[in-house]
């Protein structure tokens, strides 16, 4: 694997490791509800500090179940990842196209055309 790709893979692995380790090490075991959301814990803390506080506004739309909610979160992540991946792929393709066009132009001027499997995306 090229050095660039190797560093990129290592970055992803490090992120996965940081996310998985707390679960594997059982760092949530001391809690009644392990790995609950920090936002929800803050709501609990508010009601501890001020037991009389009542939220004065409720969400305009609330997903009917946890499944629907996690589905909508997945949609949010998928849309974001899709756009990022589309852009990265488009730019990479453009670069390769430009490199091929340049190689073809210089190839037409002198010598045989470049092999198709050449990797113009090399950094």
């Amino acid at each position: 694997m090229r050095r660039n790709a190797r560093v990129n893979v290592l970055l992803v692995l490090a992120v996965v490791l940081i996310a998985v380790l707390p679960v594997v090490l059982g760092l949530g075991d001391h809690k009644a509800e392990p790995f609950a959301g920090a936002d929800a814990e803050a709501e609990t803390a508010i009601t501890e500090i001020d037991p009389d506080y009542r939220p004065w506004f409720s969400p305009v739309y609330e997903p009917p179940s946890g499944e629907v909610e996690s589905g909508l979160f997945a949609v949010q992540a998928a849309v974001g990842a899709g756009v990022v991946a589309y852009c990265l792929g488009l730019w990479r393709g453009r670069r390769q196209g430009e490199a091929r066009a340049a190689a073809a132009a210089s190839g037409a001027a002198s010598g045989p055309p470049p092999a198709d499997d050449a990797d113009p995306g090399r950094v």
């Binding site: 707390p22 760092l27 949530g28 790995f35 609950a36 979160f73 949010q76 974001g80």
Partner: peptide, 16 residues
């Protein structure tokens, strides 16, 4: 959009 939808476990035993 992606990152704010990713709820990850943390060392404190909660997710953010």
């Amino acid at each position: 959009f992606v990152l704010s939808a990713l709820k990850l476990p943390s060392v404190t035993g909660s997710c953010s």
